[in-house]
Design a protein around this nucleic acid. Structure first.
Lengths: 213, 213
DNA sequence: GTCTATAGCTGGATAGAC
DNA sequence: GTCTATCCAGCTATAGAC
């Protein structure tokens, strides 16, 4: 029951492209009707095949979720790694934040699968998850460019952006009540990190000079 | 098919208390196995009755969700409105934030039903939702005590706390990786609001004095 | 009101012909 | 590999006896 992932021969290539077609259809359905309504009968119809044919390419529904997750994670890292139209670190960070929230709110089903883990008993495989890790690394790098290296602050960053996206999706879908707050949130965050950074630095200097607070 | 809500006579009171027993059992199950696993067979067993008996007290599964939501919302407002052990507005706000995140993370199923709306096609009735509105009003009042009255800032507050709770529940259940950041987040938020408040005030003063920036 | 029994539906997964 | 046909599990909801 092992899935062939090889694409070295034309046989594998055909198989792989057929899998892609199915994943295309799956995302089209989820985008239209939401993740909760997703089922294999509708998927087969959308892909122009029958249910058993799906099982020629995937072992189970969860395997399809996994392929969908992989696709979504790849879209995510690709979007987050697109070049910025500025070299100013704070501006890049703000851009990145905008991208993140826009990515989340532009496809609610994708957001639920990738970030909310709303599918019972589903966990992505390491392969599918890998791109998401790369995206987080890119974010960490961007934060570091702004002098932000503490895990505490990285976590605060993800929580803040996730919260904005979540409120937008849950309470004002299609609107901009929370997305429009992104720039302000970034400013708030940067100001805060700089001030605590400054405090730490001056504390360190004081210690060096032997001064007690 | 209308549910009797009257408790004026002993008949209605008995009925109401039977409903409470069922809702008790429902929450016990959800607390144990999660919201996604919740079904009526298990609920009947837990409540010590059979499935049809549930329908003597509720019209549908959604009606049970609604009663559960009402209970959860009441717990929420009760917890949020407990007296604070301080009269200092910023300290009260910080306490409130701690309470909120602790409330969310202490029962994941409850968090999903109340705040994530993860049940397909379920929306709480106005009656069940009412306590949640009162809780948000209380939060608004607390923020106002700290000089924060703009809708923008209220929304930023809810997004930030929701984000912290969500990350905690989704990525570190049972831990404290994000909950321990609450105090810092509150400080960041308050500092930010004060500074923009000051900017607005001085801008207004400048306008009065006829000074251009 | 409470039970036994079951209808009726949905949806994942498979057998076997072609 | 793809189909038709079907199985089977799990679930909400109801019929009818007591």
């Amino acid at each position: 029951m092992v899935q062939k992932e090889l694409t070295s021969d034309w046989r594998g290539a055909r198989r792989q492209s057929a899998r892609e077609v199915i994943v295309d259809a799956a995302w089209a359905l989820v985008h239209k009707d939401g993740l909760a309504a997703f089922n294999l009968r509708d998927l087969a119809k959308q892909a122009g095949v029958t249910t058993p044919t799906l099982y020629a390419y995937f072992d189970s529904k969860h395997a399809i979720y996994d392929a969908m997750f992989g696709r979504g994670a790849k879209e995510f890292v690709d979007r987050m790694n697109e070049p910025f139209d500025t070299a100013d670190p704070p501006a890049m960070l703000a851009s990145s934040a905008q991208r993140f929230v826009e990515f989340c709110t532009s496809d609610v089903g994708r957001y639920h699968l990738l970030f909310q883990r709303t599918v019972p008993d589903f966990e992505p495989s390491a392969e599918s998850y890998a791109p998401a890790v790369r995206a987080l690394d890119a974010t960490r790098k961007l934060l570091a460019m702004n002098g932000i290296t503490q895990l505490r602050h990285v976590d605060l960053w993800t929580a803040m952006l996730n919260g904005l996206a979540d409120q937008q999706v849950a309470n004002d879908p299609g609107g901009d009540r929370w997305t429009r707050l992104v720039a302000e949130a970034v400013t708030m965050f940067l100001t805060h990190c700089r001030s605590t950074q400054a405090a730490r630095t001056s504390k360190a200097k004081s210690r060096i000079k032997g001064v007690q607070p």
